[in-house]
Design a protein around this nucleic acid. Sequence first.
DNA 1: GTAAGTTTTTGTACATGTAAGAAAACTAGC
DNA 2: GCTAGTTTTCTTACATGTACAAAAACTTAC
Lengths: 222, 222
Amino acid sequence: MPQPPAPRKATGRPPRISREEVIGTARRIVDADGVDRLTMRRLASEIGSTPMALYHHVRNKEELLVLLLDDYATRTLRRPELPDRPRERIVVAAAAIHEALATCPWIVEVLTADDLMSESALWFVEQIVDGLVACGLSPERAVHGYRAIWYYTAGEIVIRTTAARRRAEDDRTTYRERVFADLDPDELPRLAQVADHWAPLTAEDTYLEGLRALVDGLVATR
Amino acid sequence: MPQPPAPRKATGRPPRISREEVIGTARRIVDADGVDRLTMRRLASEIGSTPMALYHHVRNKEELLVLLLDDYATRTLRRPELPDRPRERIVVAAAAIHEALATCPWIVEVLTADDLMSESALWFVEQIVDGLVACGLSPERAVHGYRAIWYYTAGEIVIRTTAARRRAEDDRTTYRERVFADLDPDELPRLAQVADHWAPLTAEDTYLEGLRALVDGLVATR
DNA sequence: GTAAGTTTTTGTACATGTAAGAAAACTAGC
DNA sequence: GCTAGTTTTCTTACATGTACAAAAACTTAC
């Protein structure tokens, strides 16, 4: 793996491709044909190299996807105007991250891989932690609060995106539908009550409401 | 795919293996050697069949894993004593699901695949939805509240498990550590302030605190 | 020049999930 | 028995990520 801090040793066989070229070409493929079409072989051939050569610039395909997500975040995350009230500041910052990620449908494969820790995302993290501190949390509790918000946000995106993808590529009856079809109203009255509306209800986008509830709960002095 | 409701047509070539046998053998492999060692070829050979024969009993490997998780949930989920206060009931029910899933380290691959919708898990869902209604939410809002709790719970498990796995199999410096090493304290004062403790802070298990905050926020009349 | 050392590239090979279709093993109708 | 139909199993084949080792293309020391 190359060491950018070193001032270019100029020893060894000179590289024909660079990490940037790899990422850039991968981005083009993903933008054009979707993440499913991004294979190491195709990437290599489009870049004019061989599959294994790529592995000197990225550790493996997963890291490549993380780098792609980073690249995407750097290019599209714009810092919004933040309201004055700290509680609203938290909500707006988290919602901005959520929106950016939710419109990038292929992240699912990567989202769980690591925290969202690109340079450009840190500012949002800072705003959230700072907002929590402004609400009276200790720095430690603020970090925990940020983590909770991140769990909720990432979980929402991953689950909703996966569900949507599954619906798209598989129109057979899902297990869920079968289970909900014959609920015992005596044992599970509430679920039986909402069984008919379960699908539309869970399809609704309630990220913001949930986020608000979570933030409210986090900043409430208990 | 076989139709269990039909009373056994007894036509066509008689099956030599059953879905139950497939799941049972898969479970043994996973219990013995971990989910990584579960391959369709090995499963087939241990069952005394061929890989492609399995595909008449499970749709694909992902469905097999979902069925495995279902099986696991059915065997291990025990209904806890629930407190009277609805708010606490929600917390206890959600925490029970969380605990069962968190001790089953291989679920990550499946968790995002679908809701946790095995028969045995529905009772917990019922308790959560019912608890939310008892706190004054409409049935619709209660379902949304349950979804928020599920997003948070699944996100926590997926992210923490993936992070732990990554730490285990890769001791090289992570991207996160590098980013946190040189934070600009002027631009990101809060993060710089906690940078040293970030790793231990995020390693702490704060699921319950986050859950409590979320539930508090959900039931608070606003 | 040559030799040694370093880094990148390439070629080969393997494990894996699974698509496609042929074959096998049965039943029902004749 | 024979044929047609149905369901399950088996064979073959392919795409993919990537391990491993050899080769290539450099620099530096002599």
